[in-house]
Amino acid sequence: MIKPRQFFKITAPRFHIENNGKFLTRTSALTFTVSGLGQGLSVLNNKKLPKDDRKYIFCQEMATMGINLVALLTFSNEFGKWGKKLAEKGKILPHKINAEQVKQYMSEAGKKALDSKVQSKISTHIKAASVAATILGQIVALNVFAPIVRNVLAGYADKRSKQKCKNIDGIKHIASPVMPATPIKNEEQVPATMFTSTLHSTRANDMFNSFADNPNKNLQELLDQHK
């Protein structure tokens, strides 16, 4: 087993020198895992949140962390391989070197015929292409793929929670933290002047729920909507 001292003094620096692309990917994965766990723990320790909510948000944080991690490892690995392939095939070329020289470098026999300076230039170029593509993969994974998946999942969860408020018969039930869900059957039969009636309480709740959903909506629009 590697001792921690040896790991930090020799093994990790060696890995950094030999394969910087993989080093960056693995260290990013480590920091994202720690960050996800940290955010999850901070939710669990948040006493202001109800216990059930804490569990739910913790699971949400863990799911986000999982999506980030899987996307990061998959994309950066694949992009890294793709970048290396592009450089090896001569699709992207180093400064003052042509595609023929790169092809020659890739064959065992031709490599010996090349000048050592050209050889070192091409090998550095292949490494750089791999690292650049790995970073590109990380950007695509963390900044494009993961947010899209997260937004779609969050939108789906939001829709499901809103659907819970509607009965299958078409009778509207109001989900309110203040009072239990009350069905509204014939709105026209109830006088509209008494605020203390159940219907008006439910109307007020309905309005407050809409307000909570859209805090920036014009108040007049909301009042008209729930008249």
């Binding site: 910087n20 960056l24 260290t27 990013s28 001569g90 699709k91 992207i92 070329l93 180093p94 400064h95 042509n98 595609a99 023929e100 790169v102 092809k103 230039k121 550095t124 170029h125 490494k127 750089a128 292409a129 690292v131 650049a132 970073i135 990380q138 950007i139 963390l142 900044n143």
Partner: peptide, 29 residues
Amino acid sequence: AFGLHVPKSFAKLADTKPSMQRLYIGATA
């Protein structure tokens, strides 16, 4: 065989530091 020539500074990417990597990811994010 045709290929796209990259500038000389492209080789420096082989030795990208973690701080620069975080900057690239953050700026695009």
